[in-house]
């Protein structure tokens, strides 16, 4: 019964939040008008709402809300998969250097004054390249030991962080430098229908991939050798997980900048709710992550006339919340 209720909540909450996000904001659109604007896309309705309201709902809030959900869900499920694969609860999605590499790519795009779409593309490509480099470094005799992966990730991340600092060092302080700085703090302000279409494919593909191998993840958490003795091709599995999480994280970072904390903490919240079994944990983190980032982004865009960077809020609100959960459960969920 309680399990059923949990599952029902995990389905209902993100959808309710999504609807709420469409009428919450600085521009007043009533919940009813939101429903009618949405319905008008399918049924012929007499449009007596303002054109601006329609643009706000369909072009600005909806892509942004969906983007927040995709990214929140993607980062969380990737974090859960990595924590299982590396057998370490402190692991986050950027362990293989994807965030640093994407960040550098974005900074380069900003330095070259590329538009939002090109920026996304360049950041995505750099993210993929960064992880490819890490994977290549970690590869020994057709195996990729976890320790080698972690250390190679540290090396690649350090290298790209230095490149990023270099990019900031040469950036024009009146326009480019603040742009890079704000971008790195994370924001979904650039979300548009076009941008959404571009991130949707890699994130959905990555999530589906991870969901398909989620039962094998349970075996992998026992260690490479045990897993192999149980007939799991560990190298192939690790490869699949790395490809999926990299697709997700690179796509996420390329559009939102560096949104920390989500990939680290949401998997733990998921474990508190449904336990450590990856078959349940991965779908659960998907829902919690989507709801969490959507909620945070609603605050980011409504709390003030300005845009509050996401990276600040995810930690500022997430950290005390996590501290509370930690005290309450005394870390007994593992």
């Amino acid at each position: 019964m309680s399990k059923l209720r949990t599952v029902a909540l995990l389905i209902v909450i993100p959808l309710a939040l999504l609807y709420a996000s469409l009428f919450v904001g600085r521009f007043l659109v009533s919940p009813l008008d939101v429903a009618r604007i949405l319905a008008a896309q399918i049924f012929p309705l007499n449009a007596d709402w303002s054109k601006s309201a329609e643009i706000i709902v369909l072009q600005i809030r909806l892509p942004r809300a969906l983007m927040a959900m995709c990214i929140g869900a993607g980062l969380s499920i990737s974090g859960a998969a990595y924590q299982g694969m590396f057998r370490n609860p402190l692991v986050s999605t950027d362990i293989l250097g994807v965030t640093a590499a994407s960040g550098f790519g974005a900074a380069v795009a900003l330095l070259l004054s590329r538009n939002a779409f090109e920026l996304q593309l360049i950041a995505f490509a750099f993210g993929l390249a960064g992880v490819a480099l890490t994977y290549r470094l970690a590869r020994i005799y057709r195996t990729t030991p976890v320790l080698m992966l972690v250390l190679s990730g540290v090396v690649v991340a350090a290298f790209f962080s230095a490149c990023l600092s270099g990019a900031k060092y040469v950036a024009d302080p009146e326009s480019k430098l603040p742009a890079i700085t704000y971008w790195l703090l994370g924001s979904l302000n650039a979300a548009s229908v076009k941008g959404l279409a571009m991130v949707l494919l890699p994130i959905v593909a990555g999530c589906v991939g991870l969901l398909l191998v989620r039962w094998k993840l349970n075996v992998l958490t026992m260690g490479d050798e045990e897993a192999r003795s149980l007939g799991v091709e560990t190298e192939r599995l690790k490869g699949i997980i790395i490809v999926c999480t990299t697709l997700i994280t690179a796509a996420a970072v390329s559009v939102s900048g560096m949104v920390g904390w989500v990939g680290l903490v949401i998997p733990h919240v998921g474990r508190m709710l449904v336990g450590p079994d990856h078959r349940l944990l991965l779908p659960a983190t998907l829902s919690i992550g989507a709801s969490y980032l959507l909620f945070i982004d609603d605050i980011a865009r409504t709390a003030s006339a300005g845009e509050i960077p996401l990276g600040i809020l995810t930690a500022l609100i997430g950290a005390p919340f996590f501290a509370y959960l930690l005290r309450k459960t005394r870390g007994t969920w593992h």
């Binding site: 600085r26 521009f27 706000i56 942004r64 603040p178 302000n189 300005g306 845009e307």
Partner: peptide
């Protein structure tokens, strides 16, 4: 824009409100 300072980040929605 009724914010203070240069190069301040704002939301797209706020720009629509300012019109």
């Amino acid at each position: 824009a009724d914010v203070v300072g240069v190069g301040r980040p704002v939301t797209m929605e706020q720009v629509v409100v300012w019109n």
